[in-house]
């Protein structure tokens, strides 16, 4: 059931029919289907991105229930990628989904993202983020990156010719494996806020419209309601 022309009726006139058509042919990879990725893939599907590759080798744990939209009690112990595919198919059957229930690594990631228009970084490891950046540069596609810790989050966008994560996390030789999120945990509303900003940046990159956070870092902190855009370059 595809719901005909009614499906996207409320996207107009924020989006034009031409832009909506362009989104339907767009190809987006979402890497990581936890707190960020679960929100991103659903928002992109509802907006009308036509093709998505959803990658995560992990299964749900009970500790995911506090924030990961795709995680339900019944799905604990099952594949995040399969859950994402089922959810997106239920929301928008027009979207062509490729679910990859495997961890991305240096040997397979380039193949997974080549031919896409952009990749969304929803990973939870800083080393993994640099690995994704390397693959995205080779594939010549932009990255829309989000990260969270507690009620703080950040979003940035970089293109293949940009310095990328070095500007956010420093040089590779001095990287921590993870950030401070191991201490702070991650809260649901922060994860969804950051994933919403990522989805917005994806649409802007795909449509080449609006002010894109390229080489800028949007930093959000909800205890103080602080939202600031910092120049990285």
């Amino acid at each position: 059931m595809c719901m005909g022309s009614e499906r996207y009726a409320r996207n107009f006139d924020t989006l034009t029919p031409t832009e909506q058509e362009r989104l339907s042919s767009a190809r987006v990879v979402v890497l990581g289907l936890g707190g960020l990725g679960g929100g991103v893939c659903e928002m992109l599907a509802r907006t009308g991105v036509g093709h998505m590759t959803l990658i995560d080798g992990d299964v749900f744990e009970a500790s995911n229930l506090n924030r990961q939209l795709l995680c339900t009690e019944a799905l604990v112990g099952t594949s995040k990628a399969e859950a994402a595919k089922e959810r997106i198919c239920a929301v928008n059957s027009l979207v062509q989904i490729t679910a990859v229930a495997a961890y991305a690594d240096k040997t397979n990631l380039l193949d997974m993202i080549t031919g896409s228009d952009l990749v969304v970084d929803c990973l939870d490891s800083i080393h993994g983020r640099f690995m994704l950046q390397d693959a995205a540069k080779k594939a010549q596609i932009p990255v829309v990156a989000g990260a969270i810790a507690g009620v703080s989050g950040q979003v940035t966008v970089f293109f293949p010719e940009d310095k990328g994560y070095e500007l956010v996390y420093g040089k590779r030789g001095h990287l921590p494996a993870t950030g401070i999120e191991l201490r702070t945990g991650n809260i649901s509303y922060c994860a969804l806020m950051v994933s919403a900003v990522q989805a917005s940046e994806c649409i802007k990159v795909l449509l080449n419209r609006g002010d894109i956070l390229r080489n800028k870092l949007l930093i959000m902190e909800l205890w103080s309601n602080s939202f600031e855009i910092m120049d990285l370059a």
Binding site: G32, G35, I126, A147, S152, Y169, P176, G179, E181
Partner: peptide
């Protein structure tokens, strides 16, 4: 960050600067 722009630790502070210090954030 100083006045909304990334700086390194050697930056010499000036009167009225807005200084933001941020730890590594990598969760997803």
């Amino acid at each position: 960050f100083v006045n909304g722009k990334k700086q390194d630790a050697a930056y010499v502070l000036k009167s009225g600067d807005r200084v933001g210090l941020f730890p590594p954030v990598g969760g997803g």
